[in-house]
Lab assay of single mutants.
Amino acid sequence: VNVKKLKVSELKEELKKRRLSDKGLKAELMERLQAALDDEE
Results as ranks from 00 to 15, higher is better:
Val3Phe: 07
Glu41Lys: 10
Lys4Phe: 09
Val8Pro: 11
Arg19Tyr: 02
Asp39Cys: 09
Leu20Glu: 06
Glu41Asp: 09
Ala27Arg: 15
Glu40Gly: 10
Asp22Gln: 12
Glu10Lys: 02
Lys12Cys: 03
Leu15Ala: 02
Asp38Ser: 12
Asp39Ala: 14
Glu13Arg: 09
Asp22Val: 14
Glu13Gly: 08
Lys26Phe: 06
Asp22Ala: 13
Lys4Asp: 12
Glu40Phe: 00
Glu14Gly: 02
Ser9Asp: 10
Lys7Pro: 09
Lys4Val: 08
Gly24Ala: 01
Leu29Glu: 12
Asp39Leu: 07
Val1Leu: 04
Ser9Pro: 07
Val8Trp: 07
Asp39Trp: 06
Glu41Ser: 11
Asn2Lys: 10
Asp22Lys: 03
Val8Gln: 09
Val8His: 08
Lys7Gly: 14
Leu25Trp: 03
Met30Trp: 01
Leu29Ala: 08
Glu10Gly: 04
Leu11His: 00
Ala27Thr: 13
Val8Lys: 06
Asp38Cys: 12
Asp38Leu: 04
Arg19Met: 14
Glu40Thr: 09
Ala27Gln: 12
Ala36Ile: 03
Val8Met: 13
Leu37Tyr: 02
Val1Ile: 15
Ser9Asn: 01
Lys7Phe: 03
Val1Trp: 05
Leu25Arg: 15
Val3Glu: 05
Glu10Gln: 14
Gln34Asp: 08
Lys23Met: 12
Leu11Gly: 01
Val8Ile: 00
Leu29Phe: 01
Leu6Thr: 00
Lys5Arg: 12
Val8Leu: 10
Glu28Ile: 03
Gly24Ile: 03
Lys23Gly: 11
Leu33Lys: 09
Leu37Cys: 10
Ser9Lys: 09
Asp39Met: 08
Val8Gly: 07
Asp38Gly: 09
Lys26Trp: 07
Ala35Glu: 13
Val8Asp: 12
Glu14Val: 01
Asp39Val: 08
Glu14Ser: 04
Leu25Glu: 15
Ala35Asp: 11
Lys7Arg: 10
Glu40Tyr: 02
Asp22Asn: 06
Leu25Asn: 15
Met30Cys: 03
Leu15Arg: 00
Glu10Phe: 01
Ala36Gly: 05
Val8Ala: 11
Glu13Leu: 09
Lys17Tyr: 01
Leu20Gln: 07
Val3Trp: 05
Lys5Glu: 13
Arg18Glu: 03
Leu6Asn: 00
Lys16Ile: 11
Val3Ala: 07
Glu41Tyr: 05
Ala36Arg: 07
Leu33Tyr: 05
Asn2Tyr: 03
Lys4Glu: 15
Leu20Cys: 04
Ser21Asp: 08
Asp38Thr: 08
Ala27Gly: 15
Leu15Gly: 02
Ala27Tyr: 02
Lys23Ala: 15
Val8Phe: 09
Ala35Tyr: 06
Leu11Lys: 01
Asn2Val: 10
Lys4Pro: 11
Leu15Lys: 00
Lys4Leu: 09
Ser21Asn: 07
Met30Ala: 07
Leu29His: 08
Lys4His: 10
Ala27Asp: 13
Lys7Cys: 12
Glu31Leu: 06
Leu15Asp: 02
Val3Met: 02
Ala27His: 13
Leu33Thr: 07
Asp38Lys: 13
Glu28Arg: 03
Glu14Asp: 02
Glu13Trp: 05
Arg18Val: 02
Lys5Ile: 06
Glu40Pro: 10
Asp38Gln: 08
Glu28Tyr: 00
Leu29Tyr: 00
Gly24Lys: 01
Lys17Asp: 03
Lys4Trp: 13
Lys26Ser: 13
Met30Gly: 05
Ala27Val: 13
Ser9Val: 10
Leu6Lys: 02
Leu33His: 08
Glu28Thr: 10
Glu41Val: 11
Leu33Asn: 02
Glu14Pro: 01
Gly24Val: 01
Asp38Glu: 01
Leu20Arg: 05
Glu10Trp: 01
Leu29Val: 06
Asn2Phe: 10
Glu13Ala: 12
Leu33Met: 05
Lys26Asn: 05
Asp22Arg: 10
Asn2Leu: 08
Leu37Ser: 04
Lys16Leu: 11
Leu15Pro: 02
Val3His: 15
Leu6His: 00
Lys12Val: 06
Lys26Tyr: 10
Ala36Asp: 06
Arg19Glu: 12
Leu29Met: 07
Glu31Ala: 15
Glu40Gln: 12
Asp38Ala: 15
Lys17Thr: 07
Leu25Gln: 15
Gly24Cys: 00
Ser9Leu: 05
Met30Leu: 05
Arg19Ala: 13
Ala36Gln: 07
Arg19Val: 07
Leu20Gly: 02
Glu40Lys: 07
Asn2Trp: 10
Arg18Gln: 02
Lys17Ala: 14
Glu28Lys: 03
Glu31Cys: 13
Asp22Leu: 11
Glu13Tyr: 05
Lys5His: 14
Lys12Ala: 07
Leu29Gly: 11
Glu14Thr: 00
Leu20Asp: 03
Glu41His: 09
Gln34Arg: 11
Glu10Ile: 04
Asp22Glu: 09
Leu33Pro: 11
Met30Phe: 01
Met30Tyr: 02
Arg32Met: 02
Asp39Phe: 05
Ser21Lys: 05
Gln34Lys: 07
Ala36Cys: 06
Leu25His: 14
Gln34Asn: 08
Ser21Tyr: 02
Lys7Val: 10
Lys17Met: 13
Glu28His: 04
Met30Asn: 04
Lys16Gln: 13
Leu25Gly: 15
Leu25Ala: 15
Asp22His: 08
Lys23His: 14
Lys16Gly: 10
Leu37Lys: 04
Glu28Leu: 01
Arg19Gly: 13
Arg19Leu: 11
Lys4Thr: 12
Leu33Phe: 05
Arg18Pro: 00
Asp38His: 06
Asp38Tyr: 09
Ser9Arg: 11
